[in-house]
Computed example of a mutant assay.
Amino acid sequence: MRDQIYKLKAQARSDSKERRADIYKQNPKVDLLRLSGFKSHSNIVAGFSPINDEINVWPLLYDLQKEGYDICLPVVEAVERSLIFRRWTPQSEMQTDRYGVSYPIEGAILTPKCVLVPLLAFTPDGKRLGYGGGYYDRTLAKLRAEGDVFACGVAYAGQEVADLPTDAHDERLDGILTEKEFRTFR
């Protein structure tokens, strides 16, 4: 059964990467707009540095930072471990990890209660397909064990699919933010 789920996820990842690349090609300059209704559940928001053809979250992060939110970005300390989140400001000196993701070299380690999550695909009920490394699943499970956290996927609206294969360890999203809308699954 586990092998079957693995194969289904691998095919879903391949299909989702193609779909997202096509969406990006049609809309390469689309910035994620700050939509009414999106409010952080905390003054500490974890963003991410988009790679490849992920939707651009930088305008949102700059906007939130200007409004007084503490913004942090994920840092991979080691494979098979949870992410840590380091404070980011527009003045932060950045470095790129082996995945091509930029992160602040220095900054306080923060514990966010709102995590913006990159993804390849999502469903109408909050299932998420990531890249397969398990970083966000481990991190969200850890944060949820410590208290309430709002996991908000960030993607193009066209990345929504009817269903996705999942395992017991796959963490669900609490909401989704696209260039068209913000909605919650809770």
Score class of each variant (00 low, 15 high):
Y6F: 13
K7M: 15
L8T: 07
K9H: 14
Q11M: 07
A12Q: 02
S14C: 09
K17R: 08
A21I: 07
D22G: 13
Y24H: 06
Q26S: 15
N27M: 13
N27G: 08
V30S: 11
D31H: 15
S36A: 14
K39A: 14
H41A: 07
G47C: 11
G47F: 04
S49Y: 02
P50K: 04
P50C: 05
P50F: 10
E54Y: 02
E54G: 01
N56F: 12
L60H: 09
D63E: 11
D63F: 12
D63N: 15
L64A: 15
L64Q: 08
Q65A: 14
G68Y: 12
G68C: 13
A78W: 08
L83H: 02
F85W: 11
R86P: 03
R86L: 14
R87S: 13
Q91E: 11
E93W: 04
E93V: 15
M94Y: 12
M94R: 10
Q95K: 08
D97Y: 08
D97P: 02
A108S: 08
I109R: 07
I109G: 02
T111Q: 11
V115C: 13
V115E: 09
V117S: 01
L119Y: 03
A121I: 15
F122E: 01
F122N: 02
G126V: 13
G126R: 10
K127A: 10
R128C: 15
L129C: 09
G134E: 04
L140Y: 05
L143F: 15
